[in-house]
């Protein structure tokens, strides 16, 4: 079955969506990501959508869901590379993806993820707990 590959890079998971997503693919990605976050104990998910030339409410909801589920599983989600035309259309459609963090490109997204996990580490250190 067709799947969108998920790469593991240290503490983070990286997904690059490069195909025109049909609905089943969207649902599978959601399942795969959540199970990988939990099995690897990942602290961050980066979704690169720079190749997507449209995001409709279905894909929008998938992104929102992934961010929400990751948060429950103690991971931060960053969506990177949304194209201007896609962003304008999403806003017009009425979706603002509240609660989803964004960055211009993969590099800036990684900086954002590292900063947030570092912050978490320091907080946990102050609490006297160890990261393991």
């Amino acid at each position: 079955m067709e799947r969108i590959p998920i790469l593991k890079m240290g503490d983070f998971l990286i997904v690059t969506i490069q195909v025109d997503m049909h609905d089943r693919l969207v649902t599978t990605l959601q399942d795969d990501l959540t199970s990988m976050i939990s099995s690897h104990g990942s602290h961050g998910v980066l979704i690169d959508i720079s190749s997507l030339d449209m995001v409709d409410s279905f894909i929008g909801r998938m992104i929102g869901n992934i961010a929400g589920m990751s948060r429950v599983l103690d991971a931060e989600t960053v969506v990177v590379g949304m194209r201007p035309a896609v962003a304008i259309t999403l806003v017009e459609l009425g979706l603002s993806l509240d609660g989803v963090r964004t960055a211009l490109d993969v590099e800036k997204g990684m900086i954002l993820l590292r900063a947030s996990t570092r912050r978490r580490l320091t907080e946990e250190d102050e609490d006297g707990r160890d990261e393991g």
Binding site: V79, M82, A87, L90, S96, L97, T102, A103, D105
Partner: peptide, 9 residues
């Protein structure tokens, strides 16, 4: 402003 935020700016 919202669209820019979606793009990460």
């Amino acid at each position: 402003v919202t669209a820019a935020r979606l793009m990460g700016a």
